[in-house]
Amino acid sequence: MSAQFQLLNAAAFDHTIKRLCYELIENHNNFENTVIIGLQPRGIYLSGRICDELQIITGLTGIAHGHLDVTFYRDDFRRRENPLVPNRTQIDFIIEDKNVILVDDVLYTGRTIRAGMDALLAFGRPKKVELMVLIDRRYSRHLPIQPDYVGKVVDTIASDNVKVKWKEIDEQDEVFMITENEDNL
Protein backbone atom coordinates (compact mmCIF):
# COMPACT_ATOMS: atom_id res chain seq x y z
CA MET A 1 0.00 0.00 0.00
CA SER A 2 1.38 3.38 -0.89
CA ALA A 3 0.74 6.36 1.35
CA GLN A 4 1.03 10.06 0.80
CA PHE A 5 2.02 12.71 3.33
CA GLN A 6 2.70 16.39 3.25
CA LEU A 7 6.21 17.80 3.63
CA LEU A 8 5.34 21.49 3.20
CA ASN A 9 1.95 23.18 3.31
CA ALA A 10 1.22 26.48 1.58
CA ALA A 11 2.30 28.61 4.57
CA ALA A 12 5.55 26.70 5.15
CA PHE A 13 6.16 26.82 1.41
CA ASP A 14 5.91 30.60 1.46
CA HIS A 15 8.20 30.92 4.52
CA THR A 16 10.75 28.68 2.85
CA ILE A 17 10.87 30.82 -0.27
CA LYS A 18 11.29 33.98 1.84
CA ARG A 19 14.09 32.36 3.85
CA LEU A 20 15.88 31.25 0.66
CA CYS A 21 15.69 34.85 -0.58
CA TYR A 22 17.32 36.20 2.58
CA GLU A 23 20.10 33.64 2.27
CA LEU A 24 20.69 34.83 -1.30
CA ILE A 25 20.73 38.47 -0.23
CA GLU A 26 23.39 37.69 2.42
CA ASN A 27 25.72 36.35 -0.26
CA HIS A 28 24.82 38.40 -3.30
CA ASN A 29 24.12 41.82 -1.86
CA ASN A 30 22.60 43.92 -4.67
CA PHE A 31 22.68 41.18 -7.36
CA GLU A 32 24.78 43.41 -9.60
CA ASN A 33 26.88 40.55 -10.88
CA THR A 34 24.44 37.71 -10.25
CA VAL A 35 21.98 35.95 -12.53
CA ILE A 36 19.28 33.45 -11.62
CA ILE A 37 18.61 30.54 -13.96
CA GLY A 38 15.74 28.09 -13.46
CA LEU A 39 16.02 24.60 -14.93
CA GLN A 40 13.19 23.47 -17.22
CA PRO A 41 10.61 22.17 -16.78
CA ARG A 42 9.78 22.69 -13.07
CA GLY A 43 12.71 24.66 -11.68
CA ILE A 44 11.46 27.75 -13.51
CA TYR A 45 8.57 28.16 -11.07
CA LEU A 46 10.94 28.33 -8.09
CA SER A 47 13.31 30.72 -9.90
CA GLY A 48 10.35 32.91 -10.90
CA ARG A 49 9.01 32.96 -7.33
CA ILE A 50 12.48 33.76 -5.93
CA CYS A 51 12.89 36.68 -8.36
CA ASP A 52 9.46 38.11 -7.50
CA GLU A 53 10.12 37.79 -3.75
CA LEU A 54 13.61 39.33 -4.06
CA GLN A 55 12.07 42.30 -5.81
CA ILE A 56 9.54 42.74 -2.99
CA ILE A 57 12.18 42.43 -0.24
CA THR A 58 14.99 44.49 -1.81
CA GLY A 59 13.09 46.77 -4.17
CA LEU A 60 15.60 45.86 -6.87
CA THR A 61 14.13 45.60 -10.34
CA GLY A 62 15.70 43.84 -13.27
CA ILE A 63 17.48 40.96 -11.53
CA ALA A 64 18.60 38.85 -14.51
CA HIS A 65 16.43 35.74 -14.76
CA GLY A 66 16.57 32.98 -17.37
CA HIS A 67 15.30 29.50 -18.16
CA LEU A 68 17.60 26.68 -19.17
CA ASP A 69 16.58 23.41 -20.81
CA VAL A 70 18.97 20.49 -20.29
CA THR A 71 17.30 17.89 -22.53
CA PHE A 72 20.09 17.77 -25.12
CA TYR A 73 22.75 17.43 -22.41
CA ARG A 74 21.22 14.53 -20.49
CA ASP A 75 23.20 11.32 -20.07
CA ASP A 76 20.22 8.98 -20.58
CA PHE A 77 19.53 9.70 -24.27
CA ARG A 78 18.90 6.40 -26.11
CA ARG A 79 18.68 4.68 -22.72
CA ARG A 80 15.04 5.66 -22.33
CA GLU A 81 12.11 4.18 -24.18
CA ASN A 82 11.47 7.46 -26.05
CA PRO A 83 13.40 10.69 -26.46
CA LEU A 84 12.34 13.60 -24.24
CA VAL A 85 10.77 16.53 -25.98
CA PRO A 86 12.74 19.66 -25.09
CA ASN A 87 11.49 22.88 -23.51
CA ARG A 88 12.42 26.44 -24.33
CA THR A 89 15.70 27.94 -23.19
CA GLN A 90 15.62 31.66 -22.65
CA ILE A 91 18.79 33.39 -21.54
CA ASP A 92 18.85 36.95 -22.84
CA PHE A 93 21.98 38.05 -21.00
CA ILE A 94 25.70 37.30 -20.88
CA ILE A 95 26.80 34.86 -18.19
CA GLU A 96 30.53 35.36 -18.79
CA ASP A 97 32.13 36.25 -15.43
CA LYS A 98 28.76 36.29 -13.63
CA ASN A 99 27.71 34.50 -10.46
CA VAL A 100 25.09 32.05 -11.61
CA ILE A 101 22.47 30.58 -9.28
CA LEU A 102 21.03 27.42 -10.82
CA VAL A 103 17.56 26.70 -9.47
CA ASP A 104 15.60 23.44 -9.48
CA ASP A 105 12.69 22.06 -7.49
CA VAL A 106 13.96 18.65 -6.31
CA LEU A 107 17.57 17.47 -6.09
CA TYR A 108 17.76 13.69 -6.28
CA THR A 109 20.52 11.86 -8.21
CA GLY A 110 22.26 15.07 -9.31
CA ARG A 111 22.25 14.04 -12.97
CA THR A 112 19.98 16.88 -14.09
CA ILE A 113 22.26 19.40 -12.38
CA ARG A 114 25.28 17.85 -14.08
CA ALA A 115 23.52 18.28 -17.43
CA GLY A 116 22.54 21.83 -16.40
CA MET A 117 26.16 22.77 -15.75
CA ASP A 118 27.15 21.43 -19.17
CA ALA A 119 24.31 23.28 -20.85
CA LEU A 120 25.27 26.48 -19.03
CA LEU A 121 28.78 26.42 -20.45
CA ALA A 122 27.34 26.88 -23.97
CA PHE A 123 26.58 30.45 -22.87
CA GLY A 124 30.07 31.33 -21.63
CA ARG A 125 32.29 30.86 -18.57
CA PRO A 126 30.58 31.94 -15.37
CA LYS A 127 32.65 33.22 -12.45
CA LYS A 128 30.89 30.94 -10.01
CA VAL A 129 27.92 28.58 -10.10
CA GLU A 130 25.75 27.91 -7.04
CA LEU A 131 22.82 25.57 -6.69
CA MET A 132 19.46 26.26 -5.04
CA VAL A 133 16.81 23.59 -4.57
CA LEU A 134 13.48 23.52 -2.77
CA ILE A 135 13.83 19.87 -1.73
CA ASP A 136 17.08 17.96 -1.22
CA ARG A 137 16.58 14.18 -1.22
CA ARG A 138 19.60 13.43 0.92
CA TYR A 139 21.80 10.31 0.53
CA SER A 140 20.56 9.49 -2.97
CA ARG A 141 23.18 11.16 -5.13
CA HIS A 142 24.80 9.41 -8.10
CA LEU A 143 27.29 12.24 -8.57
CA PRO A 144 29.32 14.47 -6.24
CA ILE A 145 26.89 17.41 -6.34
CA GLN A 146 25.64 19.35 -3.28
CA PRO A 147 23.28 22.32 -3.09
CA ASP A 148 24.26 25.72 -1.62
CA TYR A 149 20.72 26.79 -0.71
CA VAL A 150 18.16 24.23 0.44
CA GLY A 151 14.48 24.69 1.24
CA LYS A 152 14.01 21.39 3.03
CA VAL A 153 16.06 18.23 3.41
CA VAL A 154 14.24 14.88 3.29
CA ASP A 155 15.45 11.33 3.73
CA THR A 156 14.00 9.01 1.14
CA ILE A 157 14.53 5.64 -0.45
CA ALA A 158 14.51 4.99 -4.18
CA SER A 159 10.88 3.79 -4.27
CA ASP A 160 9.65 7.03 -2.66
CA ASN A 161 8.47 9.89 -4.83
CA VAL A 162 8.62 13.58 -3.90
CA LYS A 163 6.26 15.94 -5.72
CA VAL A 164 6.21 19.72 -5.70
CA LYS A 165 2.99 21.45 -6.67
CA TRP A 166 3.02 25.06 -7.87
CA LYS A 167 0.19 27.58 -7.73
CA GLU A 168 1.03 28.61 -11.30
CA ILE A 169 0.17 25.20 -12.78
CA ASP A 170 -1.25 22.98 -10.02
CA GLU A 171 -3.58 25.50 -8.31
CA GLN A 172 -1.79 25.36 -4.94
CA ASP A 173 1.67 25.35 -3.36
CA GLU A 174 2.46 22.08 -1.66
CA VAL A 175 5.22 19.49 -1.31
CA PHE A 176 4.29 15.91 -0.55
CA MET A 177 5.87 12.49 -0.56
CA ILE A 178 4.41 9.24 -1.84
CA THR A 179 5.93 6.22 -0.13
CA GLU A 180 5.40 2.49 -0.21
CA ASN A 181 7.23 2.10 3.08
CA GLU A 182 4.70 3.15 5.72
CA ASP A 183 7.30 2.99 8.52
CA ASN A 184 8.45 6.27 7.08
CA LEU A 185 5.28 7.97 8.31
Binding site: F72, Y73, F77, V85, N87, R88, Q90, A122
Partner: peptide, 25 residues
Amino acid sequence: MIFKTADTFKEVINRPIKKTPSLRD
Protein backbone atom coordinates in the same frame (compact mmCIF):
# COMPACT_ATOMS: atom_id res chain seq x y z
CA MET B 1 6.69 17.21 -32.51
CA ILE B 2 9.42 17.81 -35.10
CA PHE B 3 8.52 21.53 -35.23
CA LYS B 4 8.54 21.93 -31.44
CA THR B 5 11.90 20.22 -31.22
CA ALA B 6 13.21 22.32 -34.13
CA ASP B 7 12.14 25.51 -32.28
CA THR B 8 14.52 24.66 -29.46
CA PHE B 9 17.30 23.63 -31.85
CA LYS B 10 16.91 26.95 -33.65
CA GLU B 11 17.65 28.65 -30.33
CA VAL B 12 20.64 26.31 -29.82
CA ILE B 13 22.22 27.16 -33.19
CA ASN B 14 22.05 30.85 -32.36
CA ARG B 15 24.03 30.43 -29.11
CA PRO B 16 27.71 31.34 -28.75
CA ILE B 17 28.46 27.58 -28.61
CA LYS B 18 26.20 25.95 -31.17
CA LYS B 19 26.77 22.34 -30.27
CA THR B 20 24.96 19.89 -28.01
CA PRO B 21 26.20 16.46 -26.98
CA SER B 22 22.94 14.54 -27.64
CA LEU B 23 24.17 12.18 -30.40
CA ARG B 24 27.73 11.73 -29.16
CA ASP B 25 27.41 7.92 -29.30
